[in-house]
Simulated scan of single mutants.
Amino acid sequence: MINETALLESKALRDSVLDRTDVLDRVKALSLLPDGMHVTTAMVATYFEVGIKAIRSLVLDHREELTANGYHVLTGSELSSFKELSGIQSRTASLAIFSRRAILNVAMLLRDSEVARQVRTYLLDVEYIARTQPVDNSVHSHSDALDDRIDQRITHILGKTVVPMFDALIATSSEHRRELIALRTGVQHIERRLRQHHARLQRLEGPRENRPLAGVMASIDAMNGPEFEEHVADLLRRDGCTDVIVRGGHGDRGVDITGRTADGRHLVAQCKRFAPYNSVTSPDIQKFIGAAKVLHKAEVALYVATCPFTRDALNIAAECGITVVHRGSLEAWSTGTELQVLK
């Protein structure tokens, strides 16, 4: 995936994503003038959490590009008309205004702003699937279809015949119980890998119109809380977890999901759908530790979030055996990579 700093250097790349003005509100709420279309220089500075001088300096260096995308300085009768139509109370002789497209342009040029960096990262996240998903123009042979049917048949036999056979042997054997459990775990791992392989093939070979146009994280950010919890639960089930139950809401005893890993360990998960510029802090982790380890006696505890974790939060999680799934890990997990702790 292209690094967000590439947008700072490439005008062609900036031009290719200028229509994605909705990203501005995804990252941070954008306040507009009463006309609902423009903002002033001061409002742009507030949005990006920088000084007004930084915005003015940027305009000076990139005025032609910004003007082409909606930056404009109003004076004279034009300013009077704008004040009357928008209801602005101002006695200035001139007023610089930015359209949403121009604000997005600023985000792709402004170096010393964390908000601008988040906008650039989000932009590329929204675009990356459209760039990276291959267009399937191949003609599939009969042998490909046969291989796929064989894989599915093997998966079915492993899940419906071999694993139950091991279950029966484990239940009636005491002498070789440990070895049998290890063999069953190996078979379940193979079955799970085959299912994941088949799911990936279906995604790649499916019709183009059924594929999402937005990036993975953009789709997740559009979910509400319950939808995000269900998404995480689906990922756990995909990776072989059983008895997965979404418990989010009142009375959840501090966890959103419970279940068991493929090898039988008790699992709990906490799901936080935060804005990407926020962070999970150490108090958040400490509260979860109490719920996961004390109330639920969990052997595997996941804290899944759509944002980064602070350094203190990461340190406390590592010390207490909490597996953190930050924004980058969540993206990889959602696109098919299995979490190490679930293997």
Rank of each mutant, 00 (worst) to 15 (best):
R131H: 06
D136G: 02
S94A: 09
S113N: 05
A107K: 02
E78N: 10
D61Y: 00
I129G: 13
L32A: 04
L123H: 05
S77Y: 08
G76N: 09
I97Q: 05
S31I: 04
V115A: 07
N137S: 11
L79Q: 03
A68C: 10
A54Q: 11
A54E: 08
T121Y: 07
E127D: 14
H156C: 05
G70E: 06
E49H: 07
L158P: 05
V106L: 01
E78P: 00
L104I: 06
V50A: 07
A145N: 12
K83A: 01
V73C: 13
I97T: 04
S90W: 02
I103C: 15
A116P: 08
S80D: 08
M108W: 03
A93P: 12
D112G: 06
I157W: 13
V50N: 09
I55S: 09
L85G: 02
V163K: 03
L66N: 06
V126S: 13
K160N: 11
I154F: 12
D148E: 15
V119R: 12
A96Q: 01
I157K: 13
H38K: 00
F48T: 10
V50Y: 11
T121R: 08
A145M: 14
D144R: 15
E114C: 10
M108Q: 10
R111P: 00
I88T: 05
T132D: 03
Y47W: 05
R120E: 14
S143Y: 15
V126F: 05
R91G: 14
Y71H: 15
D148K: 14
T132S: 03
V119W: 02
E84T: 04
E127I: 11
V162P: 06
T67H: 06
T161G: 10
S138C: 10
R100D: 10
I52A: 07
R131L: 09
